[in-house]
Nucleic acid binder design. Structure first.
Lengths: 233, 233
DNA sequence: TGCCTTGTATGTTTTAAAGCATCAAAGTTA
DNA sequence: TAACTTTGATGCTTTAAAACATACAAGGCA
């Protein structure tokens, strides 16, 4: 299923990778500070409270990043896709992880040693700046989500989450089916609602022909309408 | 009221300032890229949608950073105190401001030109790293707040906000009065609740002798109890 | 000084969403 | 293949918080 043949070369030579902008010398050195790990579906990559072991790059697969809240109720704060980096916030702030990462499907993750990141990569101001940009964007996203999740009503929150999944993972070849298959519970935890309400509201959207559901397959039939629901409830 | 005599020297020579770690040459150059502005109470420093004009440092005063949500309802995402930096997230991500900054009292703000920040400061890896750390911590804070504001009940949210104000601004000389004077509306907007509920819950806390209120003056009588309320509701 | 706006306080009603309960369907394991 | 577990679906009840309605106090300002 997974392309386990992916090597360091494929990562550093992909323009979408954060390591693409390193110079050749740095890329060569990176080889000695990187290791690859395989995860099955629904496995923890790290847990809230763990000490960061390095800078993690999701090579293949999909991952949810979530925090445990009141009574163990989880809130998904971010979704990661291939070539996305994870766990770096805690590494850079020298804190323990304040969120957990769990694979949504079989995944490949590579770990880059903190030593390389701090003593080599961050000395390259292009790399530092890219990290700064990434953190800045994510902070903007997080602040926006705070407002959405606290202020929008259920329909708006769910609509926004569906659009978020669309933007992050895109569609299957048919051009309408979301290329990510979440349980209703995960959809609920992404949208700050109970599983019952996620199920109920998805059904309503389906009956309104805004989406179509077939098991975990979600087709977005009317993205504009979804945008409107997201904005106006 | 304000110490308007504060000069660039006082900023760069204060260990709490982000510019403290620049080298002498950089500090000297900074002088030519910095300007100071004075704001009265309740004035906008920047508005959601504005293009960032530079890197802002709050020299004196207090500032709330907030986002407009559904129906104009505002959510305070951060509070700033002297020597704190503001508006840098949008500057670094090259976006328009996604939040507004308004003074809570008379304030002094200095603006550092984007040119200096991008072409000089960020070439200094110590400075870059400090920015990375700052963004990382703020992102952690933002994610935690998301969970708090969506999951905790009113009492827990308000208790957490009061503790947050305590940690940020500390106490007056009496050791119990919060050194920040917010309207009930601002307290509500910080805690994701209506003004009525902020007033009601503050009254309840006062009747429980957890705090004491005298107009906008809030005394924290039992911080431990407040911690417990914040955790358990 | 009194008027008027704004902020604070508190009681009442309404409502969105959580919490429960039940059942069906789909997966998983023995 | 049957027994069991998990996930999805839907109806009903409860509840936390918003919305609304006054009322009162304080601070500006004419």
């Amino acid at each position: 299923m997974l392309n386990s043949e992916l090597g360091v070369k494929d990562i550093v030579d992909n323009p979408k990778s954060i390591f693409y902008l390193l110079n050749q010398e740095e890329k060569d050195e990176l080889q000695h500070h990187i290791s690859l790990a395989h995860y099955k579906k629904n496995e923890f990559i790290f847990k809230e409270g763990d000490k960061p072991t390095g800078f993690l790059l999701l090579v293949d697969g999909k991952v949810k990043i979530f925090k445990e809240g009141v009574g163990g109720r989880e809130q998904i704060v971010r979704m990661a896709k291939p070539l996305g980096v994870i766990g770096y916030r805690a590494l850079f702030s020298d804190e323990i992880h304040n969120s957990s990462a769990v694979t949504l499907e079989e995944s490949l993750v590579c770990t880059i040693s903190p030593d390389f990141i701090f003593n080599r990569a961050l000395k390259n101001s292009d790399f530092s700046f890219k990290i700064i940009r990434k953190l800045s964007k994510e902070l903007g996203f997080s602040n926006s989500r705070t407002v959405t999740l606290t202020q929008k009503h259920i329909r708006g929150r769910l609509a926004e989450s569906l659009l978020l999944l669309k933007d992050k993972y895109g569609f299957e070849h048919d051009g309408t089916t979301l290329r990510v298959y979440l349980s209703r519970e995960d959809i609920a935890n992404l949208s700050n609602m109970t599983t019952s309400n996620a199920i109920r509201t998805l059904s309503t959207f389906a009956s309104e022909k805004v989406i179509a559901i077939d098991g975990r397959k979600i087709k977005i039939l009317d993205a504009n309408r979804l945008e409107r629901v997201s904005k106006l409830g």
